[in-house]
Design a binder for these strands. Sequence first.
RNA 1: GUCCCCAUCGUCUAGAGGCCUAGGACACCAGCCUUUCACGUUGGUAACACGGGUUCGAAUCCCGUUGGGGACGCCA
Length: 467
Amino acid sequence: MTVVTRFAPSPTGFLHIGGARTALFNWLYARHTGGKFLLRIEDTDRARSTQTAVDAILDGLSWLGLQWGGDVLYQFQRAGRHAEVAHQMLAAGKAYHCYASPQELDEMREAQKRAGVPIRYDGRWRDRNPADAPPGVAPVIRLKAPHGGQTVIQDAVQGTVTVENAVLDDMILLRADGTPTYMLAVVVDDCDMGVTHVIRGDDHLNNAFRQLQIIRAMGWPEPVYAHIPLIHGTDGAKLSKRHGALGVDAYRDMGFLPAALRNYLLRLGWGHGDDEIISTAQAIDWFDLAGVGRSPSRFDAMKLTNLNAHYLREAPDAELLPLVLPRLEKKLGREVDAVGRTRLERGLNGVKQRSHTLVELADKLVFYAGHGAPAIADDKARAQLTPDSKALLMRLAASLDGVADWTDKPLEDAVRRFAEAENVKLGQVAQPLRVALSGSTASPGIFEVLAILGADETRTRLLAAGG
RNA sequence: GUCCCCAUCGUCUAGAGGCCUAGGACACCAGCCUUUCACGUUGGUAACACGGGUUCGAAUCCCGUUGGGGACGCCA
């Protein structure tokens, strides 16, 4: 049997980190088993669904590298099919019309709340004669759920979960306006799409029992359920669009790499021994449902950042350059010219070793991209440029004029000899020099910076700082 | 309120009854390396929520307590 998984977000907002992980797990499981990963947009709530949100979700998944198979299925377009199933159930006596008005049901729930009894539909139209139907009221169709016994789910993550049927009420399948509810639509679509494994957040665990009742009423094959624990914010509460969650686009803007986010998300709720750095290929090979933990986890930006720094260091320069270039040009307010580009190509490796995000990478790279004296980063850097050190830099500029081979090693020799001649420690020359060239007290190796900037640019910056 | 789920360092986790004096990673602290910052490396602080069982033996199994989370819509 070919495994079919799906990710089924509702387009009411961006793709947040929890949804991204759900998508990742579904994608990984499909890839691991050689199955298919499908995408379905649950847009049956016409009032809240937007095209902007659909685009954000599609963009987010693409950026994350989670390619879905086939066309995107839009749930609303299948409303006819959903209604058809509801009517089949009606005809088969598995469902019934309910004429209770929304206000009436609100009152019912209020009364239940006051009485301290479970809040659920009381089945007032379940066995009532249809002849009692009030005139002019469009009914909803409700599932005639089994009364006795219990419903049991063998969840691939949660294990055996049992619920008494008595606590499950007769949910609405088809609204008064003839549109399907989520419960019906999910089940019909999963069945028609041939979904074999439903991997989703465990906020859906309770829904699974209701969905199973529909599936059984229709006599359809039951999927394997895998309800993965939710991701919580640092306060321990469910992460949602309304509560602290950011869209994956926000992480892209913050300079995180898709590979890092995938690795981080994978480790949130799933483990494979002591492994931490897990490539996507490795993840596909290793991923299984049995390794998914059962307790909720909290989002830890520090760990993501650490992982991102790792993937940044590992990434080929050619891959990174196009990603930082736009950020650099935004900083400079102009295009990076050919000279700047060459320096970036040579300097990228040294800087990426020292960066955690693309944002940081761009910050630390900007001195290579521009011309003339760099902006001084902070007071610590400014403090390096004393009258004494400025004078020293002027003498250094003169001394460096004699360097014929403007590369790392000869430059290092020259600077060391200069320090010796001045009778100061190397650091006493290196730090002011670093600030003069890069604008900061922290940079790649100073001789590398010297070499990449070139003799002319170095001289320009030295004179600017010394004068 | 009712139902469901969960519980190992601050965080993510390893742990399938003896391999546990509880391992790894992030973060934090100290040392080394060093032209700065990183990287790297060495060491350190830090956890089985509590109470009962079962067992020769429990972080691991059972029950309860406490705590946390989720769900109870003509939302998805």
